[in-house]
């Protein structure tokens, strides 16, 4: 297990001075090399969980182990952050340097990695996100999607085992979103990196191995995307919207048509052809 959350609670003090649980008794386990999506609407606790993985927050109760390291132990801090990288939501607010390559170097510099190796890592990271051409560019001249790709490269340069994407596509246009999602898949398939995708777009979860749905700080459903998405009652309660294919199948079923559950367009088309 690369991520193991046992009975995790995270409490914060609300404006009225009351304790509120952003996460309440959450168990999430993720294996090395998995692509896991954590879905939930705003305020469901999904971003709180993201920050626990990176030890930016520490659980109030329960424990989180990252590659066997307890996030509550201060001595593990740098190792955990090196293992579990994080890409945030706002593309403008996570780039530190005024030149792309220098921004990518920021993480490795912090880790005290020798210069020659940092250079190699920058080459590698830029090639994975297909941004080699932009090495010497200024970040503020890039598009939102390109900025996010640089942020991913910055994380990659720390050679992480896990990358957490905390709503990293929410502020992008369709093109930027598609690019970032494709890179996530490549990272998972080709580089063997464990991906934790935090999002409220269900259609982004289609390619993941497993899906967790968080609602009001609790895991209310987890499993294979197809199983989860076709549990209509649960989905309805969470206020998430089904991806196109699932919605069409649901609406067909409502009229008494029996069709195979799938999230794949091609399979859905075949299903419809067979019914004709």
């Amino acid at each position: 297990m690369i991520v193991e959350a046992n009975g995790v609670r995270f409490a914060y003090v609300s404006d009225e001075g009351k304790y509120t649980f952003a996460l309440n008794d959450v168990d999430i386990t993720i294996e090395q090399g998995e692509f896991v999506t954590i879905l939930g609407h705003n305020g469901s606790g999904k971003s709180t969980f993201a920050k626990l993985v990176n030890a930016l927050n520490v659980p109030t109760n329960g424990e989180i182990l990252i590659d066997g390291m307890d996030t509550r132990d201060e001595d593990n801090l740098l190792d955990i952050r090196k293992t579990a990288g994080m890409v945030f939501q706002n593309p403008d607010n996570q780039l530190v340097a005024t030149i792309v390559e220098e921004d990518i170097a920021f993480g490795p510099e912090n880790l005290g990695i020798p210069r020659e190796e940092i250079r190699e890592r920058i080459d590698y990271a830029l090639s994975v996100v297909h941004m080699e051409k932009y090495r010497k560019h200024a970040p503020h001249m890039l598009s939102g999607g390109q900025k996010q790709r640089i942020a991913i490269a910055g994380v990659l340069a720390m050679k992480p085992k896990i990358i957490v994407f905390d709503e990293s596509t929410a502020m992008l246009d369709p093109k930027g979103r598609k690019d970032v999602l494709n890179i996530m898949r490549d990272l998972n398939r080709n580089e063997g990196i464990t991906i934790i995708l935090i999002t409220h777009y269900m259609e982004e979860a289609v390619y993941s191995d497993r899906v967790y749905i968080l609602d009001d700080g609790k895991v209310i459903k987890q499993g294979d995307p197809v199983d989860v998405f076709f549990d209509y009652d649960t989905i309805e309660k969470t206020g998430l919207t089904l991806p196109f294919e699932a919605k069409l199948i649901r609406d067909m079923e409502k009229t008494g048509v029996a069709i195979r559950h799938t999230l794949d367009t091609e399979e859905l088309l075949e299903g419809i052809c067979q019914l004709k």
């Binding site: 990288g85 920021f106 490795p108």
Partner: peptide, 22 residues
């Protein structure tokens, strides 16, 4: 946001830091 992002990228002050450009 930036402080959080820097922390997530292992920023911990100037000690034991290398520099890309020497």
């Amino acid at each position: 946001d930036l402080a959080l992002a820097m922390e997530a990228r292992c920023y911990h002050g100037g000690d034991n830091r290398t520099r890309l450009v020497e």
